[in-house]
Write a protein that binds this DNA or RNA. Structure first.
Lengths: 348, 348
DNA sequence: GGTTAGCACTCGGTAAAATCGAGTGCTAAC
DNA sequence: GTTAGCACTCGATTTTACCGAGTGCTAACC
């Protein structure tokens, strides 16, 4: 899946300056108006110092080369995915509006709490900032090691296995025994589990005692439960902000439904985001990502890193005619803030 | 907020049998077709043994009494909220289709894992079962007491406070110290925290040590963090299933947007559900719940109980013209299954 | 008195027709 | 190479006509 444009199938150099200017103007106009844009609208643009007739002939060329399309004869032009691609690749970085910068600063200055909470709130923030639906993905902890395990008994047969990992995640698992265990048994099992599991990661198999006393059975049961769930635990967390925006920015109930349906499936969302993810802000337009149902969407993704490693991503989902400059700036800014937030001394 | 109809403002007895039959037929027809229904369609109904002319005059009466409305002269009739209310109140309980019953049984026979996971999956199930958007609310644990507290150090200054409650919930909180603490300090703090907090609930204030040694400071800090978060922790969990259905069952992008926007706000959803909640399956139609933006919706809610006490609820959200019989049956069945699931020996 | 066939009337929805105009491509002049 | 001019296209919008589902009313009927 292409992350950045490969312009190799465009004639060598790409586009001469005037064509580029015109293409850019068309894209800008179309993003603004959502309408096919005609040659005269472009000719009126200050950056384009030629008449509409000239613009028209250039448009014919741009259409031939696949950057523009005509919904029908005698209509204006609409950018193709390729057109958007060119536009995005030649977009000089935008900057966030001051109001938004303030909001962002405000948010990260005051946000408190666990990673999960921060990510969730970030999703909402990002959506408010951009007016598009946002996606925030927190990395799974596939290679996290266990810091502490504790077995707590709810009653004689129900126990709760609480596991703390070195990446700060905490999991709980019910351990249901078909025998009764005393507080002391559970405490001892807890002790043994710690001895057994601390420092290991979930993909490691551990030697469990084969004795048949209550404590040993508790230990075995606990380890079994924990490892059985291992695959699930590695899953990334997904937070979606502003899903109602979908109904705002897409037209056509059916499109809205499809997009929402995709968003419901967290696994899909994760793979979509990871697919698009690259260094810096990446964009996938239309069919560039492999998701058919989202072929009328653009996805913008920025990584969140911790000590150089990607630990998550923030993304935005909108129609292909989205406000790339602003949105990319927002994604970048939020990603940077998050990176700093987690890299800094704020714990987590 | 009315949960059940108060028919007091209708003439004493309510409706005579024929009017009731006609009203029922109108509602059924309108639910099926989403169109205003005319007198002849009703007269064709086997249950109505009178001519369309008679039906018409009855309809005039029903309209005068507020059960039906006419979108415009010379159109058919549409049920009002009051009409739906009457319909629902006089609905004999529906039964679930066998396929659905099987699916339900299947699901609860195999579902595993923590309460949270079960509830989330239940939301999806309920949505699949009914083709409407579902809401599952798990009760907050306002009066839960602490079973165990554990302070785990991530590094010298970052610690994680993991708390287990007697209702099986587990919380974690970052404790960030501005001083360094050794493993031993943390272990000792953990021990003291246990001594201090076990058996208490979060609304209780506890006496914390005023000493200034590392351990005491850790303990103080931990208790502070835990109690600071207390209000948040009491919040109910909300799981929403099939939000894409919103785009299917409502018409008008704006309505879809509004409904989605409501669903995004978990607090709103909780209060909505709790507002509607009653004994058994409750229904709020149109403006019966106080939520203006949802005045074109019906909400169906069934409680989930544990040992007689309500510990949550399952709900469904659809247009006022939803398939009440089927959906109420589904809500009831799922609620019953959940109640049994948690009441039974399956742990949680 | 309640019920029903008959009928004139209403009025939104749909289809057909007319119109508009934004936008095009082409050509000829610059 | 650029541009003004112009005939032409074709979707969108408006207009008009029309249809018919449905109504309310009345007079006949049981």
């Amino acid at each position: 899946m292409a992350r950045r444009a490969k312009l190799t199938d465009a004639p060598a150099i790409g586009l001469d300056e005037r064509k580029a200017t015109i293409l850019e103007a068309v894209v800008n106009e179309h993003i603004d108006t959502a309408q096919p844009v005609g040659s005269s609208a472009i000719a009126a643009n200050a950056d384009v110092a030629v008449s509409s007739a000239t613009v028209r002939s250039e448009m014919v060329a741009l259409e031939r080369e696949g950057y523009l399309a005509q919904p029908h004869t005698s209509a204006g032009r609409v950018p193709t995915d390729k057109g958007y691609r060119y536009f995005v690749d030649h977009l000089e970085a935008g900057v966030l509006g001051v109001a938004q910068q303030r909001q962002l600063g405000e948010f990260f200055a005051h946000v408190r709490g666990e990673v999960e909470d921060v990510l969730e709130q970030t999703a909402t923030l990002l959506s408010q900032l951009t007016n598009y639906t946002s996606v925030v993905v927190g990395a799974g902890h596939s290679n996290a090691t266990i810091l502490s395990v504790q077995l707590v008994n709810l009653d004689a047969r129900h126990h709760l296995l609480v596991t703390v990992f070195n990446d700060g995640t905490v999991t709980k698992h019910s351990v249901l025994a078909n025998f009764e265990a005393s507080h002391l048994d559970v405490a001892e099992a807890s002790r043994q589990l710690n001895a057994l599991l601390i420092g290991t990661s979930l993909d490691l198999t551990v030697q469990v005692p084969s004795r048949t006393d209550v404590v040993a059975r508790l230990v075995r049961e606990s380890v079994a439960v924990l490892h059985a769930e291992a695959p699930t635990l590695e899953g990334e967390q997904v937070y979606i902000g502003g899903s109602s925006r979908v109904a705002q920015v897409f037209d056509g109930v059916e499109t809205v439904r499809q997009v929402l349906a995709i968003l419901e499936q967290e696994l899909l969302v994760v793979s979509l985001v990871e697919d698009v993810l690259g260094q810096g802000v990446s964009v996938a337009i239309g069919s560039e990502h492999g998701f058919e149902p989202l072929s009328s969407c653009a996805v913008i993704v920025a990584p969140v890193t911790l000590e150089g490693e990607s630990v998550g991503a923030v993304g935005l989902l909108g129609p292909t005619r989205m406000k790339y400059r602003e949105v990319m700036a927002a994604a970048e800014a939020v990603s940077a803030h998050l990176t700093q937030h987690f890299g800094g001394d704020h714990g987590g």
